[in-house]
Lab assay of single mutants.
Amino acid sequence: VFVDDHLLEKVLELNAKGEKRLIKTWSRRSTIVPEMVGHTIAVYNGKQHVPVYITENMVGHKLGEFAP
């Protein structure tokens, strides 16, 4: 499973602090992992960042699938 390192670091850091804030990313190719559930990730679609709230059903899919 591929997840960009910088994105995973941000998610794990927020989980350690117990925070839930918006994470901006250009990494549409990253796979959604269970650690991301409950976070809102702003995924770049080529024009703007689209906020995507991550749920359990999204695990295993790519971030780009949810930012048309």
Rank of each mutant, 00 (worst) to 15 (best):
T25Y: 01
I41E: 00
M36S: 01
H6F: 13
N15D: 03
K24S: 10
P68G: 07
E35N: 05
P68H: 10
E56C: 09
V3G: 03
T31W: 08
R29S: 09
K47R: 13
K47D: 08
T40E: 05
R29W: 12
A42G: 14
F2V: 05
G38I: 01
H49Y: 15
G18H: 06
K47A: 13
M36V: 01
V1Q: 14
K10N: 10
L22S: 05
N15R: 02
A67D: 04
F2W: 15
A67F: 03
G38W: 08
T55W: 11
S30D: 01
T25V: 01
K47L: 12
S27H: 04
Q48Y: 13
S27G: 03
E19K: 07
V11W: 01
T40V: 09
R21C: 13
L8I: 09
D4T: 03
P34D: 10
K10M: 15
M58A: 08
L12Y: 06
E9R: 14
I23H: 01
E65I: 08
I41A: 02
I41S: 00
H61C: 11
N57V: 15
G46C: 10
A42W: 03
V59W: 07
L8S: 02
E35T: 08
T31A: 13
H39M: 02
T25G: 02
R29D: 09
M36P: 00
M36Q: 02
S30K: 02
H49Q: 03
N57H: 10
F66A: 05
M36H: 03
E56T: 12
M36A: 03
H39E: 00
L22G: 03
M58P: 00
I32C: 08
F66D: 01
P51W: 04
H39V: 02
L7T: 01
V59C: 13
V33Y: 04
T25A: 02
S30H: 03
A16P: 01
L7A: 01
H49A: 03
S30W: 02
V37T: 13
H49R: 02
S30I: 03
H39G: 01
L8N: 02
V11G: 00
H6T: 14
E35V: 15
I23N: 01
V59L: 12
M36T: 02
V52W: 04
F66G: 03
K10S: 13
V59M: 10
E9A: 14
P68N: 07
H6M: 14
